[in-house]
Design a binder for these strands. Structure first.
Lengths: 220, 220
DNA sequence: CTTGACATAGAACAAATGTGCGACTATAAT
DNA sequence: ATTATAGTCGCACATTTGTTCTATGTCAAG
């Protein structure tokens, strides 16, 4: 019943796309004139006219007379009613950022943000999970990039070949690597096969947690 | 010059909180005067003064001289003390599997499973998102593996270099590649730099959606 | 006491912006 | 041809809104 029967006019569609893009880029909506400039619409009143159209279709919301008072209405297309229902969601505490120069904080921060992900994406064991955002390039890899969110399970031992957050005592830094125990030493193998492994004494490493999921945001 | 040593002054903290709240509620930032009214700061210049402080601390970004040109910086430091957890969860419809041999289903399935992820991980624009699980090896890549869950935004055009789900008419298959428009043809570049791109006529491709997130489960 | 950051007012000003209105064009329907 | 309708322009106007400048108050350090 939501769906408008008539198809969205070319120009309205373009404006909507521009709005979405602009807001994403700038964090605030554009002015009528900016819209016009971007889409080669020479008259502010024309833009106004289209905006009114978009508003009538329920695609955007506007605050009259206030500058940049445009807001995208969540979801023009079907489905997304974003029901919070399902109850199958895990709240994983977000501990902050993982940087090479500091060990992972053991305690959750006071405010405790969380990352919500639904349980179906995990295996059975959902204990001891926590999330960190990767910052900086020191542990970058084909698999792990700057800005990625990694979800780890807190444990101090991992199986050979599993990826873990590792604290190196001597270097005083944290890194994300695949871990292989080789007698008295440990081989830390980047996930990227073209990168060289590093070897450290077994007593120099402290496993901080096993990486169970990597979430990469590609764009906004 | 990252971390500010001195603690955030009461008033700046309040303003920051107000900004966050206002933007959340209205979809666009407040004016200097609105901030003043909300926090009982009678002078616009005072608000300006504090805003400058927040900007110097890197907590906000401003576009000079443009109305409501304030944007919260996704802050690299902790600062959770005064950040209200946005804690909103998105339910993204899970459309099923993306396989090479079939186009992506346009409509959500009836029963419609969803993937719950909290909003904070996304940009502001959360419209038209849907999730798919990658199956099979045909679009495997350094970035995309079998079993990964990808989240896409439904759109039929992408910027150069963005990764998208692409339907190839002539091959009758779907693939995930970075898209580059090169005149009459399109270059589909695997994210893995060691893999060769493929070239197809522009009218042979149909963008199905832009990849905005990749979720990889590493272990059980 | 003096000095100098820091905090605070208030008002004036210049831009940035949304809106309204009249007029004009191109279709498509009557 | 006439009329209705959606699309289009320009432009004037009234607000909305960021910035700046002057003046004053506070308070700790010198």
């Amino acid at each position: 019943m939501k769906r408008k029967d008539t198809k969205l006019p070319e120009r309205q569609a373009k404006i909507y796309a521009f709005l979405s893009d602009y807001i994403n880029t700038n964090g605030f909506p554009p002015t009528v004139r900016e819209i016009g400039e971007a889409l080669n619409i020479p008259s502010t009143s024309l833009v106004s006219y289209y905006l009114k159209g978009l508003e009538e279709r329920g695609l955007i919301d506007r605050e009259s007379s206030i500058s940049r008072g445009i807001r995208l209405v969540s979801d023009p297309y079907q489905s997304n009613d974003f029901l919070p229902g399902s109850g199958e969601t895990l709240s994983i505490p977000f501990l902050g950022y993982i940087v090479a120069s500091a060990p992972i904080p053991v305690e959750a921060l006071a405010g405790t943000e969380t990352v919500e992900i639904n349980r179906a994406l995990f295996g059975r064991d959902v204990n001891g999970l926590f999330a960190l955002q990767v910052q900086g390039n020191s542990m970058i890899d084909a698999l792990i990039h700057d800005g990625d969110t990694v979800i780890l399970r807190h444990q101090d031992r991992v199986e050979n070949g599993e990826m873990a957050a590792v604290w190196l005592n001597s270097n005083a830094e944290t890194t994300l690597k695949k871990v292989y125990y080789e007698g008295a030493r440990v081989r830390l193998q980047p996930a990227n096969p073209t990168m060289e492994p590093i070897f450290v004494p077994a007593n120099d490493v402290r496993i901080q947690g096993k990486v169970v999921m990597v979430i990469r945001q590609l764009s906004n």
